[in-house]
């Protein structure tokens, strides 16, 4: 593939060589064909440490086209170290357009959040996954967990939830909340808050890349995604019981920010783009200031 961006002549488009991208695309296609199934792939060494999103970066590299518009979020924010460095990485190696606006992006790489704005059919959401195996902390043997997946033996997953209720009186798992996909595979949705779980039934394609663990899995659009629960302790998508102090949103997932050592705190949207766009539309929260174009 040729590339017309001047500064990338030393690299193939999007860093990875074409053979590697083909290999990853095959894994992605298989993952889409069998929703929730963890497809092994030959994860490459990337120019960043494991745990920084090497899986997500490889998946993004495999799906990016020159005409794509790329957005990266880390815990919902566009301006954190991880998001900035991955965005720069693809600006340099692929020369694609980048954006912070969810609606404009065609490929969104995310760590630990699903954007608040509803995603559409022409978008791809790429997750960074640390540990793809939902059964891992209950069953350490890989051979055994694979067998459990293939035979659909998922009783153990409920043992974890049982332990939660027994210890805390409610299902205390707040992130990486296990889901069952299309009535078949139990899947780890990566460490997104369980607030985001219901959003996984969406119009966009969702791809999950785990670089260190060498697994890719995927959800085609409109897949049925059910969060596991008990009949008498149903799943609940929880968030801080507060409104955003900057934009006043009551429906978005909030971060709690400690502002001083005297108990001062504020709750703010974790999705920075959502917060910014609300402020641009004239909304204001309890501690907010009027919106100015270009101001942080």
């Amino acid at each position: 593939m040729t590339n017309d961006a001047e500064n990338v002549t030393a690299y193939n488009f999007a860093y990875l060589d074409e053979q590697t991208k083909r290999m990853i695309r095959r894994a992605i296609l298989k993952g889409l064909a069998v929703p929730g199934y963890q497809v092994p792939f030959a994860s490459r060494e990337m120019p960043m440490p494991y745990g920084w999103g090497t899986g997500g970066v490889q998946v993004s590299a495999a799906v990016l086209c020159p005409e794509d518009c790329f957005k990266v979020i880390d815990q919902g924010a566009d301006d954190t170290t991880n998001a900035v460095s991955i965005r720069k990485f693809f600006e340099t190696t692929a020369g694609v357009a980048t954006t912070e606006e969810t609606a404009k992006a065609t490929v969104i790489q995310t760590r630990h959040r699903i954007p608040e704005a509803r995603l559409g059919e022409d978008q791809i959401l790429v997750y960074q996954v640390p540990i793809p195996e939902p059964l891992r902390f209950l069953e350490p043997r890989e051979t055994e967990t694979r067998k459990m997946h293939s035979l659909e033996e998922y009783g153990l997953m409920h043992v974890k939830l049982y332990e939660d209720v027994a210890q805390h009186g409610a299902i205390a798992t707040a992130y990486a909340y296990p889901v069952k996909v299309e009535g078949r595979y139990v899947m780890d949705p990566s460490p997104i808050p369980k607030f985001d779980n219901p959003k996984m039934e969406m119009d966009a394609i969702q791809l999950f890349g785990a670089g260190r663990e060498q697994r890719i899995y995927a959800l085609p659009p409109h897949s049925k995604v059910v969060s596991l629960d008990f009949e008498d302790h149903p799943f609940e998508a929880s968030k801080a019981d507060h409104a955003c102090d900057i934009c006043g949103a009551e429906d978005s997932y909030l971060d709690e920010v400690i502002t001083d050592d005297a108990g001062g705190r504020m709750f703010v949207c974790s999705d920075t783009d959502y917060c910014r766009s609300r402020r641009a539309a004239g909304h204001m929260g309890a501690q907010g200031v009027p919106y100015e174009e270009g101001a942080a």
Binding site: G155, H158, V159, Y162, A166, F230, E231, D232, H233
Partner: peptide, 24 residues
Amino acid sequence: GVSAGGNVGERLMAVGARHYGQIR
């Protein structure tokens, strides 16, 4: 690594029990 109750309940959950109160 699992409580006594969870140990006893595992077989019940493995055959489809999904009601916490009854399992416990």
